[in-house]
């Protein structure tokens, strides 16, 4: 079967509990080994160093959780009769929990190419400042037309306006803890990183510091 017609396995999974300490690469290796244990017919690259054709959504920082992480696995042949999702789920460790799995026919574009929004829920500690100061910073952020931050890439430091691509930003309170819900741009043109919003808010607070105590990526989707 030609490559472009081969089916693939589209997986949504949760990365939580102890598994949040795994790096992106480590997570990929866990999948590679789980797929082999589950005897799922994965497609491999050619050449001296064959690798399973698996791709993941852009990395989560080490320590962060994901509620609906994405992974795409190329299959070497038509979907076999058994339930691939169940077989894979049985081999994944607790903390990497399958949310859904389906075998899809290969389209022309990778589903990752269309991801343009991501949602986060971030629990924060307010250090040396009051909750009122956070709230006024949030208000200031909401009313501002531009919020410029500096983003360092390998080659240069660029000035970026994150405000237009911060689609939602609101506080939530639960069990005496402060959470920030964010809906941010995730595509190549509109990317905003949650830590950039946090640092902009810290500046707007005027004093003290906003510290991330747990970052949760709720999901990524096509707007």
């Amino acid at each position: 079967m030609p490559d472009h017609q081969r089916p693939y396995l589209w997986v949504e999974f949760e990365k939580t509990a102890k598994m949040r300490h795994l790096s992106h690469l480590e997570t990929a290796r866990v999948f590679d080994r789980a797929l082999r244990r589950a005897q799922i017919p994965v497609d491999y690259t050619a050449g001296y160093h064959p690798r399973a054709k698996i791709s993941f959504a852009p990395p989560l920082p080490v320590g962060a959780e994901g509620r609906r992480e994405l992974c795409e696995i190329d299959l070497a042949r038509e979907a076999p009769p058994w339930d691939l999702g169940k077989a894979l789920s049985k081999q994944l460790p607790p903390g990497l929990n399958l949310v859904s799995a389906q075998v899809l026919a290969r389209g022309r574009r990778s589903p990752f190419a269309n991801l343009s929004r991501a949602e986060y829920n971030i629990s924060v500690d307010i250090v040396d400042a009051s909750e009122e100061q956070l709230h006024s910073a949030l208000e200031q952020f909401g009313e501002a037309e531009h919020v410029n931050i500096k983003r360092e890439t390998k080659r240069q430091v660029r000035q970026i306006d994150i405000r237009p691509h911060t689609y939602e930003l609101r506080p939530q309170h639960k069990d005496n803890k402060v959470y920030l819900y964010m809906n941010l741009g995730f595509g190549p043109e509109n990317l905003v990183k949650p830590e950039e919003v946090i640092s902009a808010l810290t500046q707007m607070m005027g004093q003290g510091q906003l510290r991330v105590s747990r970052l949760v990526r709720l999901g990524m989707y096509e707007a």
Binding site: K18, H21, L22, E26, R37, V62, G63, P93, P94
Partner: peptide, 14 residues
Amino acid sequence: EVVAGPARYIGGEV
């Protein structure tokens, strides 16, 4: 949360 390579300390491997 603050050390390098935390996954080596968590146990629970297959």
